[in-house]
């Protein structure tokens, strides 16, 4: 039918095992590797004078954000536009959601306008999974409550792979508010799939009980965690999700779990510093560390666009 069959050694074919990207939990190792290989090529597209390909020119994507976001929303929108998709944006605060419309009604109304894919962020865990069972469009989870944030985990692992060549065998410490973090869960699942060792570090109150069941080490002392790891992923304290006091004061948290230049220089090796953003400078990480050459925070942002292009491209390309 198509002229790809020049010979027996024609181009390799593969597709994701899932129709939606709801969480890393649904991806297997070959899915993640396929996303990375595709993202490699999109990263090279992003470094060309014309940073665009026409692949998704007949695809319409709605970005539906029920929660605030700067990086993720911009990154998705750029990824969509660089794939030549048509994009509509929707923020819950300025919509009929505030008039009492339900999630399914809101989304079905958007889909009635012939939208193919929905990128959604929602404050409730499982919102994407719920939606995927009730509407026809393909769903990409851009963060659901304290549950998962799959594209963030993929871009984090992709950045580690870029820095070290491989993720397998690397030691990654995730430091901070693990309890309220969707980045932490997705990162743990993704890094474990790729064969990395993972440690979580933070005050006892911010580490979920039984997290060891995911196959991660637990540490409460920052210096020990840093001495163990190759990569430290510093998470923000999610004050907006904390309904009770989990530690006495931000100042005390910062003294015990904040990463500063002094601690970094006291280590006998050079570790890589990551942060998913937004940074609270002076709380979990000081400015001089965030801006140091060990930090790959801005590389993470750059890779975010390539990873999201890969995810959207691979999902859109599946047989309809």
């Amino acid at each position: 039918m198509f002229d790809i069959n020049h010979g027996e050694n024609s181009q390799t074919m593969a597709e994701l095992s899932t129709r939606h990207l709801l969480g890393i939990k649904d991806l297997n190792l070959s899915d993640i590797e396929l996303i990375f290989e595709t993202a490699d090529e999109f990263k090279s597209v992003l470094n060309r004078p014309i940073k665009k390909v026409p692949s998704l020119r007949d695809v319409t994507i709605a970005n539906i954000f029920f929660e605030n976001s700067t990086r993720t929303r911009l990154s998705f929108e750029l990824a969509e536009k660089r794939l030549s998709a048509d994009v509509v944006n929707f923020a819950a605060s300025s919509s009929s959601v505030s008039k009492g419309e339900t999630l399914i009604d809101t989304v079905n109304n958007i889909l009635a306008m012939k939208v193919d894919m929905v990128v959604m962020r929602h404050p409730y865990a499982g919102a994407g999974i719920f939606l995927s069972k009730h509407v026809k469009a393909q769903i990409v989870n851009a963060g659901d409550g304290a549950h998962e944030h799959p594209t963030q985990a993929l871009l984090d692992a992709f950045s580690i792979r870029e820095r070290y060549g491989d993720v397998a065998g690397k030691k990654v410490a995730i430091v901070g508010d693990i309890l309220h973090s969707r980045v932490a869960l997705s990162n743990i699942l993704c890094l474990k799939q790729l064969g990395a060792e993972v440690m979580v570090c933070g005050p006892t109150t911010l580490i979920p009980k039984y997290i060891g069941a995911l196959g991660v080490k637990v540490e409460h002392d920052l210096l020990s965690a840093l001495n163990w790891c190759d990569v430290a992923n510093m998470l923000r304290i999610q004050l907006e999700r904390q309904d009770i006091k989990y530690f006495p004061s931000l100042r005390e948290y910062s003294m015990l779990y904040g990463l500063n230049k002094q601690i970094l220089d006291s280590l006998d090796k050079e570790i890589t510093i990551m942060h998913p953003g937004p940074i609270n400078r002076g709380v979990e990480i000081t400015s001089d560390v965030a801006d140091s050459k060990q930090s790959i925070i801005l590389d993470q942002v750059e890779n975010g666009v390539a990873i999201r292009m890969a995810v959207l491209y691979l999902l859109a390309g599946q047989a309809q």
């Binding site: 790809i4 390799t12 074919m13 593969a14 390309g317 047989a319």
Partner: peptide
């Protein structure tokens, strides 16, 4: 989006 399988 027209073929059976996707190209890498």
């Amino acid at each position: 989006r027209r073929g059976e399988r996707q190209l890498v």
